[in-house]
């Protein structure tokens, strides 16, 4: 009896979960973007974020006019899956008709985008350890390196060499942030009263440098540098759902 009850519960749970998962898509399809956003946010809080969930969240945020949050969602989706079609379309749409700026990717960043930062690091670690062990093991065993040993050495050394640009590209890709506030001033100095040398808008993607005095040095898509308040940026790495900066504070 107890077993039958458990089976029934499992069947019911199996029937309910897909329905819940489709709530956001159904709401999005009928134009209820707030409902879609709430459904997907609840799913993200429950199960964690995935590339397609973040891409969908980005779409809903964009439809609601939250450009900064949308760009954060799409960029993070591309970190998890560099070929996610919804996120790629969203970023291109934002750059095209949305008017947001995004730095042109260098060849190393495009190269890094082939696999993703974690995969590059794992491959580089494998290459490094393969090279090191094939160099050391024959010496430790006091034997002459065999033919297979030479093959593994060449393969792992080549793998490690190929990973270096990928690691560099992933590093530069990680040093980017999305502007979360409308009409943010890029200042000459990292001070409150610093002279404004440039402007940037919500949703723009900037390359980030060092931080100092509550400001972060940024480089815009057209290569102009300056300081922006750190609270007006959200790094692409290191988060799940977009931070609550856009949440209106109590008036």
């Amino acid at each position: 009896m107890n077993r039958l009850l458990r089976l029934t519960i499992l069947l019911l749970a199996g029937a309910v979960v897909p329905l819940l998962a489709g709530d956001g898509e159904a709401a999005y399809a009928r134009g209820d973007y707030v409902g879609a956003l709430e459904a997907w946010t609840a799913q993200a809080r429950r199960d964690g974020v995935t590339a397609d969930l973040l891409a969908a969240l980005g779409n809903a945020e964009w439809k609601l006019g939250h450009k900064g949050r949308a760009m954060v969602c799409w960029e993070r989706a591309l970190l998890l899956d560099p070929r996610d079609p919804v996120a790629l379309a969203g970023v291109r749409h934002a750059q095209g008709s949305g008017g947001t700026d995004r730095p042109t990717q260098t060849w190393s960043e495009n190269y890094a985008g082939l696999l993703g930062a974690d995969f590059w690091l794992i491959l580089a670690a494998l290459g490094f350890w393969g090279t090191l062990l094939t160099l050391l093991l024959p010496r430790l065993r006091r034997q002459a390196p065999g033919e297979w040993n030479q093959r593994i050495l060449v393969t792992s050394a080549t793998l490690f060499a190929f990973c270096i640009p990928g690691l560099y590209g992933a590093y530069t890709l990680a040093n980017r942030a999305v502007v979360r506030r409308p009409d943010v001033a890029v200042k000459l100095t990292p001070t409150v009263l610093g002279e404004t040398v440039n402007g940037t808008a919500e949703g723009d993607v900037l390359r980030t440098g060092r931080s100092f005095h509550g400001h972060t040095y940024v480089t815009s898509a057209d290569g102009k540098g300056g300081w922006v308040k750190s609270t007006e940026l959200e790094p692409i790495w290191g988060g799940g759902l977009p931070a609550n900066l856009d949440q209106k504070q109590a008036p």
Binding site: A89, H93, L121
Partner: peptide, 23 residues
């Protein structure tokens, strides 16, 4: 590619709470 694509969210897929690089 112009415009947004219709999102498809896979049901029951487990994700991560925070996207942090292995580095």
């Amino acid at each position: 590619v112009t415009g947004l694509l219709a999102p498809q969210v896979s049901a029951g897929a487990k994700g991560v709470a925070k996207i942090e690089p292995l580095a």
